[in-house]
Amino acid sequence: MREVFSKFLVDLAKKDERFILLTGDHGYALFDELRRACPDQYLNCGVAEQNMVGVAAGLARGGYRPFVYGLAAFIPTRVVEQIKLDIAHDGLPVVLFGDGAGFVYSTLGTSHQCAEDIACSRAIAGLDVYSPCDDVEMAWALERAYAGQRPSYIRIGKADVGAVHAQPMGPDAAGLCPLAGASNQPLALVATGSMVALARDLAAEVPASIAAYSLPLIKPLPEAALIALAQRHQAVVTLEEHSVFAGMGSAVCEALSEAAPLPIKRVGIADRYSKYCGSYAYLREEHGLTLAQVRQVVQDFSQRQGLALAG
């Protein structure tokens, strides 16, 4: 996913002289090729995220196409107000990236872990929010954000959990992607970002009972596709490496409670911080987000809903 991101930036820099990448002194090797090929289109704004976002807004006003890179703990979380006032308020075509969302920085503790970025960003009027899960969704999100010329936030979580999509997504894809085998099973898993591969694997265990979907577009939410989903299935479990408060699952609940109510269980990060550090896998387990733990949650929820899960 990061390679797709990096290559997209280089290709865009060569194609569009208005493109400029701004980073708050983050990215390390990610921008090596961009800096080599198009050094004038790379701007390290220093460890100063608030100013960087304002500068990006000014550059956009002056005709440029800024892409702003940071860690999700900082972009958008630290700079919510700059995104709101300086960028989204005027619909400026600035694309923001929050890397390392969730528990990617598993050993660095609370300052670098991020469970709040979807909640922060989707409340900002006029800001699109993406959460791609693999190379295909990342390429789709990048193209859509660039071509749409709208304020956009792209969340980058754990990036190496493997490919989910076998085929590219067309530019008109709905933003809700049924994964292989999804039809009208009783239960639907709707996952985003780093949780999509797990949802796929869980569904594959009981393919007659569970359908899996990826939701890379969190705002504007593909409501029509979600309503259709609600009409095909009897219950939904949402999965995200983000707070269960005001994240993707909440967005799905908001949309479906009005238009097509059905039981929904939100799986995500509970109302607490990581207590210890360790590997990424360790933190996923600490927060109840491993395959075995999610399987148990899904089984318990299905039982309460009177759904029998069988292969």
């Binding site: 608030q50 500068v55 000014g58 550059l59 002056g62 300086d86």
Partner: peptide, 30 residues
């Protein structure tokens, strides 16, 4: 900023300065 003649949305302080820097940077680059 939606009012012609006002370039920035401000009052929450410290915003206009950064946006103005972006405008100056855009002018210089162009």
């Amino acid at each position: 900023s939606r009012t012609q003649g006002l370039e920035v949305t401000s009052g929450s302080l410290g915003h206009g300065f950064s946006v103005a820097l972006g405008l100056a940077l855009a002018a210089k680059r162009s």
